[in-house]
């Protein structure tokens, strides 16, 4: 029996579990720093002034903090998004013209629950339903680019202004890239079998007919499986962040990749694209580099490059997109991210 099945089945039991869960969460979040002080400094008698001890303290504190934030972000976004589905999104997009369609597709890409393993069936399903390729691509670009975990973490670590900039710029990239792809008539670079697929008539909408208990269960299961999947990236990210926080000289990065370097954003994006991680793994690194004087535009561009373009997803999409289209897709999205980085560095300077 897995953890999701241990949730009580009565409404009273569920509300009880939810309230107890929030209580435990709040207590852990509040006691986080104190806990590590007690363990490291009181129980083990380590010296709080020592730089190594300090780095270990920072690492443990940050790990628990990010873990707690992730639990609540993943749970809340899964429960909320269980009311949406790819099927419903397709119904919204059917018959929409380019332009308006791109905008709608990008916005829906953010709120529709979507895993990259469903990218191919969703792509074929959209095309078979007559959604233009460019509009479909806006959806596929926005979905990983404007990431719910990144939104939640940015909100708690950097405040709502940076978060809003991130969301708006991510949507803009998805709309513009999708629109350009549509104008380039990239249909000729879609594998021909896609246009021959016949949709069956049994479509069932996964967002319908679920009890709140089932949605809660999905939330718990998603928290468990996602953290099981990304914990390595998370610890590597937090570890690097802790090392930079404690050991890198204050202007080290600012000197080489700061506002003075015109290639800063470009280099950050080129490093970010092949790097396969998760928004949660990148954020501690972003926070540490920001502290050391790297400009926000460069960091946002780096984070977007990491989450938007990943090799596993490209390999999956290769099943339906020819290499030419994949190359254009990566290029327009990459250029969009670079442009956003430079724009923000100019605005926020």
């Amino acid at each position: 029996m897995n953890i999701a099945e241990r949730i009580p089945t009565t409404t009273r039991g569920r509300v009880g579990v939810l309230i107890a869960g929030i209580g435990v969460w709040a207590l852990a979040y509040w006691a986080n720093e104190w806990l590590w002080n007690v363990i490291l400094y009181d129980a083990f008698g380590l010296d709080p002034k020592n730089q190594i001890t300090e780095t270990i303290h920072f690492f443990l504190y940050d790990s628990l903090k990010i873990l707690l934030l992730l639990v609540i972000i993943i749970f809340a976004s899964t429960v909320l998004r269980s009311f949406m589905s790819v099927e419903r999104t397709r119904a919204f997009l059917g018959g929409k013209r380019e332009g308006v369609g791109n905008l709608l597709a990008a916005a829906l890409g953010v709120i529709t629950p979507f895993c990259s393993c469903s990218a191919v069936p969703a792509f074929i399903g959209f095309v078979a339903a007559g959604v233009p390729i460019g509009v479909t691509m806006s959806f596929l670009i926005a979905s990983p680019l404007v990431n719910e975990i990144a939104i939640g973490l940015l909100l708690t670590l950097f405040g709502w202004q940076i978060t809003a900039l991130y969301v708006v710029s991510g949507l803009t990239i998805a709309v513009v890239s999708g629109y350009i792809l549509g104008r380039l008539h990239v249909e000729r670079w879609v594998e021909p079998f896609v246009f021959e697929v016949k949709l069956g008539g049994q479509t069932i909408d996964p967002s319908l007919g679920l009890t709140f208990g089932q949605r809660m269960q999905m939330g718990v299961e998603e928290v468990r499986s996602l953290i099981a999947k990304i914990w390595v990236y998370l610890l590597v990210g937090i570890g690097l962040g802790a090392l930079i926080h404690g050991w890198a000289p204050t202007d080290f990065f600012a000197t080489y990749a700061g506002p003075g370097n015109p290639f800063g954003v470009l280099i950050a994006v080129l490093i970010g694209i092949p790097l396969y991680s998760n928004a949660a793994g990148v954020m501690p690194l972003v926070a540490a580099l920001y502290e050391k004087g790297l400009p926000m535009g460069t960091l946002l561009a780096f984070m977007m490059a990491v989450v938007a373009l990943s090799l596993p997803e490209m390999i999956l999409l290769r099943r339906v997109l020819k290499p030419q289209l994949l190359a254009i897709f990566i290029t327009t999205t990459g250029l969009g991210i670079v442009a956003v980085g430079y724009l923000f560095n100019a605005i926020l300077a």
Binding site: E87, I124, F193, L199
Partner: peptide
């Protein structure tokens, strides 16, 4: 097989 999956009307796996 994707064609077979879509044949059932399924887009979300």
């Amino acid at each position: 097989d994707y064609t077979a999956i879509l044949g059932y009307g399924v887009m979300s796996t």
